[in-house]
Every structure is written in C-alpha cells, then in structure tokens.
Design a binder for these strands. Structure first.
Lengths: 141, 141, 141, 141
DNA sequence: GTGGTCTAGACCACG
DNA sequence: GTGGTCTAGACCACC
C-alpha cells in the first residue's frame, strides 16, 4: 500500500481535513513520491470506512492546492510539488495558526515553557516516520 | 481604557470566538486588569453591530473558563486568574492545539525552524505586558 | 433503551439544566453506557416539545463537562469518563454546592442528622447502578 | 449590634438570598432571640452597601416564611419560631437540594467519600459561631 | 440526515 | 439598568 492513513472519528478535525493533512504530510515526508498513483476515492473510502463524499472532498481540496492531480477517470496522482501560496500568505496563515495555539494556551493557563515543550513534541514527530494513530484513538464511537 | 475589540463577519472564525480570543489576549497582556468591568452585553453588541446573544455566548464561555465573572444585574468583570482544568485536560487540549498548528505548517510547507520562530513571536507578546500607551486611536468600545 | 427524560416547564430549574442533570444521573447510574448514541438534538427537542436550541445548549454543556461528545453530522455520544477540572476547582464547586444545601437545610430547620440521612440516600443511588429492568413504561425518547 | 451579616457580591447566590439565609441561620443558632428588633431596611442596606430594595426583598421573604414579623412602621422583629412547612414539604425540599448537590458531584467526578467529607465540613460550621465571611470573599468586584 | 452559528425578539430575575 | 433563559427560524458545515 502506498500510504497508511489513520482517521479518528473522535477528533474535532473533520475527517476530510484529516485525510488532507495526512496526504500533505506524506508528500512532504517523501512517503508519497511525485507521479505516484493514489488509491481511488471509492477504494480509500472503503478501507477507511468513511463516506466516499468525504474522500472526494479531501481529494478535491488536495487538487485545488496542487498536491494531487488528475482524477478524471484515469486515476489520481501525486503532482509535482510547487508553491501555491505566496510567502506573505504562508506567513499570514502560519501566524494565524500560532495565534490560535497561543490563545488556547493562555486560556488554559499554560505557561510559555509548557507551550514550547508541546510544540517541540509536535514538531519532533514531524521528522520521524508515523508509527500509529494520533489524537484520541481511531474509530472510537 | 476598556477594550478595543474588532470583529470581522467574513472570517471563518465564529464571531463569539473572535470576541473570546481577543478578551483572552487582552487579559493576558494586562490591557484588561483583574476586577475591571467589561462593557455590558447589550452595549458591546450594539457597538460591534452583532446580536446580544452572540456577545452573551462569548462572555459565558469566558466565565466558564474562569476569565470573566458575571453577576445578575451587576455586569461582567475580569476574574482573578485561576486554574480551572486538570493537568491532564490541559495537556490534552494543548497537544491538540499543537497538532492543528503542526498540520497547518506541514500543509504550508513551513519548516520546523519557521514554526519555532512564529511560536516564539506569538509567545513573546505574553511576556511583555502592554505598557500603558494610548494606542493609535482605534475605536474603543 | 435510550433514555427516559422528563422535563417540567413550570419548574424554577431551567429546562436545559433539567436535561443536563438527568443525563448526568443516567450516565452515573449506568442507564447510559459509554459510547452509546444520544437522541439527536432535533428528535429530543421534538419529543420534549422544546426548542432545539434548548436541547443543544444542554448537550453543549454536557460536552463541555466531558460527559457527552458531539460530532458534526454524526450525532452525540456518551463520552468516556475523565477528569476535566482541576482538584482545586472541583473542591471549590463542591463546597459551594454543599453550602447551598446547608443553607437550605437551616432554612428548613432540618437538623444535621436529617441532612446526613438525605445525603446518604442521594449517594446510595450512585453506588448501585441500575440492574437492567425495563421500568414502569415511562415514555422513552 | 444584634447580628453580623456578611454578603459576598462574588457569589452566584443572590444578595437577597444571602441575607435571608444568614438571618434564618442566626435565628436557628439563637444569635437572634425571639422578639428582638432587626435593623431597619435602610440602615441595614447602608451598612451592607447594597440596594435597599434588596434588603426589603429579603425581609419580605423572611416575613412570608414566618421568621420575621412587623415592618409596618414600628420596626421589624424576630417572630416566634413556628413550622411553616409540612413534614412532607420539608423532606421534598431537602431531597431536592441533595439531588442538586449529588448531580454536581457526579458531573465533577467527585467520589461519594469526597462528597461526605465536604458535607461534614459544611455541617460542622453549622454548630459553631460564624467567624468571618464565607464564599469567595466579601466585596470582591 | 446531523450538529454549529447567528439573528430577532420575548420574558424573567436581580439590583 | 444588568444578565439569563427560551423560542423561532435562518444558514452553514459535515457526512
């Protein structure tokens, strides 16, 4: 199998977004090579036990962002990586994401050191291969 | 000084959440002092041109998290800081927030170093409370 | 089995709070098992003849306290039990609840012994979970 | 001074109720003797720094329950103690108050032992003279 | 179909 | 005047 996806129905992240993010990450990691064929929408939906519409939405978002290509009946492929966002836009989105994190930390009363530790932990997982589900555990309801 | 709030109706962040976040940050920054009275639900709703229920929801969430304290007929006040959630719950929420950030970073193609820099920038605002300037003339509410 | 809820509109306890309390007790009693699906907001609202928002508020409060877990488009489920609040916060809330009870007892002229007896009676329901009887034919929702 | 009242504006118990309950308790304790004159509405309101309407409401509730008597221009007096509620009604109210406490305990995840301890603590304060404010601290906003 | 957000406006409790 | 509760009904996101 080309890619190992884990979705968690217990997460508050929508399933289509989880698929999106994990594919993006797999491409970034090199676990999915440029030109490689993705599983079809229906087969992936079946193996993940989710609605095909959900997979279709993830694939559509990935195609929109230039990570995947095709899906006109001949299969879906990993596209050549290219920057779709300007440097400014990327910085804006990153700092918005950080803002959300910091706000959560402040509202929790977590000190900066605790935030840094959590961020390092989150980032460290980035550079190592995935070794299982993340979040609250897959398929928990 | 009260507080200068700005909301954007076009954002994908709900209005009540925008209010929540801005109040949290204002309290963390020291722009809102403990014991200070917040604008009333009705007056804030009027100046933001949103429904009073929306403001009420934000205030209720802030009260639930121990940031504000509301009293029947007497207004809403900035509460003394206290830890409401258990250590486990805080860790759970913090790591979920980090995961969202990391996924966003990966999706943006931002390397870990860039994430760390952005986080440090976000955290730095917490460690240097506002020093009493009058601002640039934003619309106080 | 779902759950048999009854609300009274004439009570001074808000409807959303009545729902909250009954669900809490049902979970504590074992009448609602972890992972079990709750009736949908709309269907419960219809059978209780209240506004869906009222049920939604009760469900939201229950989710906030870690008793239920709701997912977009997939319904609301009984969550795994966990400690959400810090020890200090729990002690604070518990002692406030006790104070209300004691004041009521004093106002009623009930001696301490009577209060202790009533408390034991109230607590005993927690320690003997329901044993699977079908009830007396209450209107299940 | 005949009676020492402490009100806490930080409590979620209405001020008029706090006054009510403390007077009831003082009568039960014997700190207020039958026939003793109460401070006037306006003087009590002034010393507690609350609205006279609030004191008036408390006195009215106390008169309704047969704890106070008079206030037709000749002052308010502690009435002869008498049972105003039937045994059944008292039991019903007490068990409702216990129900609220138990529900709170369950939703907090506090075990029965913790509840018993908190109740004992609350009851023990009953039999000793008051030695200061209770709750979150008087006059805190 | 599900839950989440927002608006509009009513009514009540508290001070 | 304040905040809290409830209703009615709209629109959106997710599955």
């Amino acid at each position: 199998m080309a890619i190992d996806l884990r979705i968690s129905t217990g997460s508050d992240t929508p399933i289509y977004r989880q698929i999106f993010e994990q594919v993006v990450r797999a491409v970034a990691d090199g676990r999915l090579a440029v030109g490689e064929q993705m599983p079809s929408i229906r087969s992936l939906a079946e193996s993940l036990v989710v609605n095909p519409n959900t997979v279709a939405r993830a694939y559509a978002d990935l195609a929109r962002d230039g990570i995947l290509d095709g899906h006109h009946g001949r299969g879906v492929y990993v596209a050549a990586r290219r920057q779709v966002l300007s440097r400014e836009e990327r910085a804006r989105r990153l700092s918005r994401a950080v803002e959300v994190l910091v706000c959560e930390a402040v509202s929790l009363g977590s000190p900066p050191a605790e935030v840094r530790r959590a961020v390092e932990e989150g980032l460290s997982a980035l550079e190592r291969p995935v070794q299982g589900g993340k979040g609250k555990g897959g398929r928990d309801v």
